[in-house]
Design a protein around this nucleic acid. Structure first.
Lengths: 182, 182
DNA sequence: GTCTATAGCCGGATAGAC
DNA sequence: GTCTATCCGGCTATAGAC
């Protein structure tokens, strides 16, 4: 019992925070456990104490974003406009987790990770379906792909760093509606 | 003299073609020279005969895309609507070089490459300026980022594989105009 | 919880035979 | 132009001291 409960998990959280920074700067493949350890000022083996494998770190980095996606999907199921829910929800997700979303959707290593984790790919498919709606025409399908890919890159675009979160969020929602109701 | 001229450069071209495939599947950091050699059925040292460094391969992969960007910029300079030229030109670029464009704009290793090659970053800045126009409002700036990032991901989206090039190109142009004139 | 040390593998890159 | 062999360094991961 030595230590207060509040301290538990801090080590893990610090590793995850450093990993997010590095993943978005250098990509997952370009980030070594040594780099994560160096950024925290600890040794490589100390990182292994928190996570037994690099894949475990990837999992922990992605977890909160997937949690938020689950909640968007749940919201959409009770709604009469799932598309609207998805546009608003995903715009909020990008704002809330800029770096994570970038790593999430743009990194090839993460794509490979998803291929071996069907529950996660399933979430992405469901969100895609919400945006597409029933029997989408080619134009809508292109628009969904454009919006999805664009969202991720907006999250990390340094050229937009001066725009505050609320303004960015409302622009994204409005541009999403423009694209997907065209 | 032994060999017909047509054969010259074939070795290099084969390496570049294999590299493009692998870069878009696994990212630049996730692709080793051994993988490139294996895909061609040759040894690693044979790849080094064509390119002295991995960076040389990256350069050769990106070169045609940058060439096309230069030509878009040149077209825009004589036009009274550079924004239109950029939308049409970039949509065509995505179609012409789907995999290259993906690696180009989404890979962290390529971003690092660009930081050390100012001529290339300069081209991207000029294209960005063409899309933005003079004194862009925040909404336009977000739209440009969304369009740029979205374009790249449309190029590699397997869900759009059944849409033929000409249809995709015209949808992209039309969606680009919608976004950027809003 | 963090360290040093080490195992074992794979990375980029080079030399030299064929 | 392709090969084998090799160098050296960095990688993930583990073992064991503190």
């Amino acid at each position: 019992m030595g230590r207060p409960k509040a301290a538990r998990g801090q080590g893990r959280d610090r590793v995850v925070a450093a990993a997010i920074e590095l993943f978005s700067e250098r990509g997952v493949s370009g980030t070594s456990l040594q780099m994560i350890a160096d950024r925290l000022g600890i040794g490589k083996a100390a990182v292994y104490y928190q996570f037994k494998t690099k894949e475990g770190i990837i999992e922990a980095v992605l977890a909160p974003a997937f949690e938020q996606m689950r909640s968007i999907i749940a919201d959409g199921e009770g709604s009469d406009s799932p598309q609207e829910v998805a546009i608003v929800g995903l715009s909020g997700l990008v704002i809330a987790q800029r770096e994570v979303v970038a790593a999430l959707s743009q990194d090839p290593e993460v794509r490979r990770f998803l291929e071996t984790h069907n529950e996660a790919s399933e979430l992405l498919l469901q969100l895609g379906a919400m945006l597409l709606g029933p029997e989408p025409a080619p134009r809508r399908r292109v628009a969904v792909s454009l919006f999805g890919g664009g969202l991720a890159s907006v999250g990390i675009d340094p050229a937009l760093a001066d725009i505050d979160d609320e303004a960015l969020r409302s622009e994204l929602i409005s541009l999403g509606q423009l694209l997907l109701t065209a």
